[in-house]
Design a protein around this nucleic acid. Structure first.
Lengths: 124, 124
DNA sequence: CGTTAATATTACTATATAGTCATATACGTA
DNA sequence: TACGTATATGACTATATAGTAATATTAACG
């Protein structure tokens, strides 16, 4: 785990006072979400916990691959795990992730809509 | 640019009805934000447009690297460009990006706070 | 025109990581 | 204890991309 220093970018004159370390932390969070398979796993957990076998079935991915992505998401603090006998159940431990995804969906839709408008305007 | 199909993950029974293509688009957006240098450029543009030379100075990065990241951000619809003589000015074209970053900051702070709490509890 | 300055692009290297197969580990059960 | 099942991990390959140096492009200006 990194620590957050107080050094902000370009000598404290940044209008967005984020240190290099803070930027790296934020980028890490975005990067973890920047894989379709991990988003798929998050989506599969939206309605509650699932064990690994269920997530393999949900996603259609290989067991090793699912396991690795689950580890990444857990280390990022997005998921948590609960063991029950042979099974390991994963669940969303940071529900704010859904707001993030919806936020992104909104901006994508806005962009696609504007592209559609500009394309239709070019036709005239 | 990809198109969004209506196929949702695991045969339409997903609680989060996102197609593979939609997941890829969302992941793309997150991945673009998943680089500290690009976040740094976005931060440098928070208060208004800047030309490339200014952004090079702001970030301390190489000209070619800044130029490439600016292209990535522009293609993602996050920035736009305006030419003025020899200079090219870049500016934020999707201001919702700042809400996204603040959202992520919030969840990171929450996580760090909870880690601090659990660590202090283990001491007792 | 030719020169200079700002930006973009190309070619390259190094690194990170997604996916896969094989194997290890952990746990329940006979 | 031995065995089977669920999950995790190690080793490997393939791919993507960040950073860099060199070069190309574009525009202003003499």
């Amino acid at each position: 785990m990194q620590t957050i220093s107080n050094k902000s970018i370009h000598d404290g004159k940044s209008p967005f006072p984020l240190s290099q370390d803070a930027l790296a932390l934020i980028a890490d969070r975005f990067r973890v979400l920047g894989e379709p398979m991990r988003l798929k796993l998050i989506a599969a957990l939206k309605d509650g916990e699932r064990n690994v076998s269920e997530l393999i079935a949900d996603t259609g991915a290989q067991q090793a691959n699912v396991s690795r992505h689950l580890r990444t998401l857990t280390q990022a603090g997005i998921l948590s795990r609960r063991k029950s006998g042979l099974n390991v159940y994963y669940f969303i431990s940071d529900p704010t992730i859904f707001e993030l995804c919806e936020h992104v969906c909104g901006s994508i839709q806005k962009r696609l809509t504007q592209q559609a408008i500009s394309i239709s305007q070019k036709k005239h």
